[in-house]
Design a protein around this nucleic acid. Sequence first.
RNA 1: GCCGAAGUGGCGGAAUUGGCAGACGCGCCGGACUCAAAAUCCGGUGCCCGAAAGGGCGUGUGGGUUCGAUUCCCACCUUCGGCACCA
Length: 790
Amino acid sequence: MDRYDAKTIEQKWQKVWADEGAFHVDDPQPGDDDPRFYMLEMLPYPSGTLHMGHVLNYTLGDVVTHFRRRNGTKVLRPMGFDSFGLPAENAAIREGGHPREITERNIASIENQMKRMGWAIDWDREVSAHEPTFYHWTQWLFLRLFEEGLAYRKAAPVNWCPNDQTVLSNEHVVDGRCWRCGFIVEVRNMEQWFFKITAYADELLAGLDTIDWPERTKKIQRQHIGRSEGAELLFRVDELDIDIPVFTTRADTVFGATFFVVAPESTLVDTLAEGSEHKEDVISYARVAAARPTEERQSREKSGVFTGRYATNPATGEQIPIWVADYVLMEYGTGAIMAVPAHDDRDREFAEKFELPIVPVVDEDGKLINSAQFDGQPWRDASKSIVAWLGDHGRGKASINFRLRDWSWSRQRYWGSPIPIIYCDACGMVPVPDEQLPVLLPDVEDYRPKGEPPLASNTEWLKVECPRCGGPGKREADTMDTFVDSSWYFLRYCDPHDNQRPFARELVDYWMPIDQYIGGIDHAKGHLLYSRFFVKALNDMGLLGFREPFQRLFHQGWVRQDGKRMSKSQGGVSPDELIDQFGADPIRIYILTRGPADQDIDWSPDGIDATARFIRRLWRVVHEAAARPVSPAGVDTPLAVKAHETIARVTDDIDRRFVFNTPVAAVMELINELSKAPDDPAARFAAETAVSVLQPYTPHVCEELWGVLGHERLWDTPWPTYDSSLLESDTVELVLQVNGKVRDRVVVPAGLSEDELVARAKASEKVQAHIDGRDVKAFVVPDKLVNLVI
RNA sequence: GCCGAAGUGGCGGAAUUGGCAGACGCGCCGGACUCAAAAUCCGGUGCCCGAAAGGGCGUGUGGGUUCGAUUCCCACCUUCGGCACCA
């Protein structure tokens, strides 16, 4: 028996798998009805190298991949790189060089790490977002969304990161700060590209009921979409002859609306101020308030200014004063509210500060008061009847409001896909014709953004003929955020080399939706929402035949180091040194046995030793068993039974329970039993079982040991089955309790009647000592337990 | 403030449908092998009392339901996430 040498074994089998294309999967042939499975982990961002969080993520996916393959399923398990984005560009600014060189160097080194980990990936389908063969089709898809009116450009208040010098989406502002660099985000009014994700708000909500996702993730998405039912009421400003709509969820309180407030960013501010004696105060307040950083604005101290205008309360007919105040947000509802100080804390605070009237309209019992004909109605009923009544007078209607905003995705930076749009003085905004795609990302002198996007500095590239009229035109110089790329990359894997279209519909319809998606919960309201939007929009255009991309979703826990989670930005332990020291197999098993895969792990190298020790023990015990005769068919010794139990447990854990730590414990138990009974006739069978079911975890050493046991190609060997009749024992250990406390255990034949079991219990001396002759009542769990209660 | 997840030995964790709490592993203790060490192997290891037999206690805290609760219900504490002037 040779010593277990991880390095030699791992290199040997990795070469075999690569040479044979062991994990390559072909396109389906017509009439192909093999069961299929699309296994995908979120693709890595290629900054630097992998960390232990990636190792957990991809090893999880690898176990599932091997398990499904060996259960007779065709498994698509591709890999690619989210290779556009700021970090490479910032590194280029910092260290010199081109972002492309930095990115491709990183990809090469991560690929190398992935291959050293032995992950069963179909490398023939690899794609990277920065390659023209990929972003060609990102641009093409953008043009389709543009044609549908789902991509548009407009001036709007957007989040500006002063450090990265670019716009951020709402989803990537965390606590008022840039998710990448942590700088406080400013609100700027700029013209930007958006996707009309709000058009799908209802559907994005409803679709959640059709997919198997963690409930907490669905809740995050539901909360982010923020659907609320209410009413839109019209408040008239007679002097200006305008109606101002407001959204409210409490139309029942309209009789208590004693003043009216408009957000400082609202276009109404100018209209209201014009011609008012308060004009200068209003304009200067609005300007100051709108420019205030979000953080400061959220301070509780109320501020505001009276416009000198009045609106008509549609219920009472009273003239109520119109104020401008920054506690009203432009981005929610209509940017204007009816203020009901008696029943809203914020309105009350404002009313108290500025001495505005407070009129209660709902009593302690939830019934209406001071509300004319609605007095006495419970508030929920009143809400409906008031909306109906106002509706009859053309002053209101039921309405649904969403918190979700359209997705702003244009960036004023370099390293992203160009946006295939040309601005022509005569024709306006003109899409680049499909046959001129891709618009290649040109080189620039300097990546540093200086008030305008870097691409604008390349005038040769920028100036172009208008495709429509042939006149002078200018290219769009903003680029796409990487989240556009990652909203459809999983579709490209289904047809990665197609140069006629982004993907063939029959191929995506065959593989999609993804059966199991694995990735961090940090993408709950970004990537996971954007991708759902893309799929719904592409389905409506007839480009694909399904409406949800990710049928089942799992979030691996964070691997934390020094209390901080390992991530692309935080860095962390590199697996390379660990592979050098221990080998990939011990690391794979180690990272999956720290605990349940969806819980966070505190990184510590303690225990990798133990894992390596277990593999050496497996190595030795299997070699010893390989010297034993082949186990006869139908062998039913206790060791054989243990082996069957192990198959049952591991299968159930991976397949039904989706837990990955306990199967290894089951195999350890089997190995312990085997080492205690080396001469058992089932010894060889037990060794084969252990090697076979451990293969998804440690594919290299198991492949080697499979050869030692006289077999080959374990990666293509059907998953073992167990004999359930062997799992039913003739005898069982019966637990005897008195008053719920365990007093004795006896071995009895299986299948005894309840009466017999009670008799056996009463026969126990230890039980008798506790009953002491008193009357008892018996509770029986057949074949398991008898509880005698005095 | 609102919403959600979690809390089990010295440590990581297990207990799948209300039925033996602590599987498996780490660490520690004892032993074998060794001149010695490493490696390996064997045994022990929740806490308290007890020489032992045995008994008591024990899954964040306090209550409840039940013959029986780590598991279900209520309240609270702590930690971690999401949202937050959302009308």
